[in-house]
Design a protein around this nucleic acid. Structure first.
Lengths: 144, 144
DNA sequence: TTCTAGTTTAGAATAATTATAAATAAAGAA
DNA sequence: TTCTTTATTTATAATTATTCTAAACTAGAA
């Protein structure tokens, strides 16, 4: 999800209508690096469209995921799904302390998976998440 | 969780009592390779102890996790937590079709992560999950 | 402008998990 | 063994994230 038009086109192409609510969700997600959950997107959306419903957010996210425009991420110890508008394969860092999710630049580590078969499985995608303490939360390091 | 005594000792060492319910949960988990969720453990437990409560299962699992005797796993598209009594670092394969989780033998792939720092994060653990179709579900391959 | 099918909305329903508080039982001490 | 203390179990209520429902609404084609 790099730009609005790309998403709008894909929606229309698939017979989904473009509503102001959906357009605003798209705006929130395009180039968003924060890996928000539905509730967070709803909070931001509600600030701009007071009468919007949470169900609409879920509905839009589900379609976006189905169309492959966002990825769902889940994190051990966090019971809501986070969404990532960057669907290029990349890994994540999660801070156990402040609960941030951070992208790991693709070139940065572990040359990325490219097999399409493993133990007889036909592989579709791979999720890699590192759990740890982010630079901010490491202050006073020896505490944790 | 390779054997009962190991778990029983650790519980007592930490001041937790050993009840028949807990002992039975341990039995279900020791050497279990199926990555069960609470509900599944409860079903098996109930067959042996009809009056047991689901809350006891959750309570026991939470302590086991806190003591590092099992790991929680979560899977995109599956909203319950699965538990892995094998706490040696290893990766997972998940079948999108039949929802099985399978261990990837450690030697089998991707020499395992050993860094303890990445982008300023102090890393505690890493989760790697491959999503795909297992050998059984691949039959009639071109369907999916 | 009209029409229709898809969408939004509020609220109910569902599912996984945690919290509560009374009844019970483990395990150490007498 | 029995007593005592404190943790545990149980049933049930509460909570949280998400999905469902059905009536009201609207995008977009004709």
């Amino acid at each position: 999800m790099k730009n609005l038009n790309e998403v709008v086109d894909k929606f229309q192409e698939q017979g989904y209508k473009i509503t102001p609510q959906r357009r605003e969700v798209f705006n929130i997600l395009v180039n968003n690096k924060t890996h928000p959950k539905a509730e967070e997107i709803y909070a931001e959306l509600e600030a701009r469209m007071p009468d919007v419903s949470l169900a609409t957010v879920y509905n839009t996210l589900n379609i976006l995921e189905e169309l492959g425009m966002i990825d769902a991420i889940n994190i051990v110890g966090d019971d809501s799904v986070h969404y990532d508008p960057n669907t290029e394969p990349h890994d994540h860092l999660y801070c156990i302390c402040c609960h941030r999710i951070v992208d790991i630049p693709k070139d940065r580590h572990d040359p990325h998976f490219s097999e399409e078969e493993l133990l007889g499985f036909r592989i579709i995608k791979r999720h890699v998440t590192y759990y740890g303490y982010c630079p901010n939360c490491r202050e006073g390091e020896d505490i944790q």
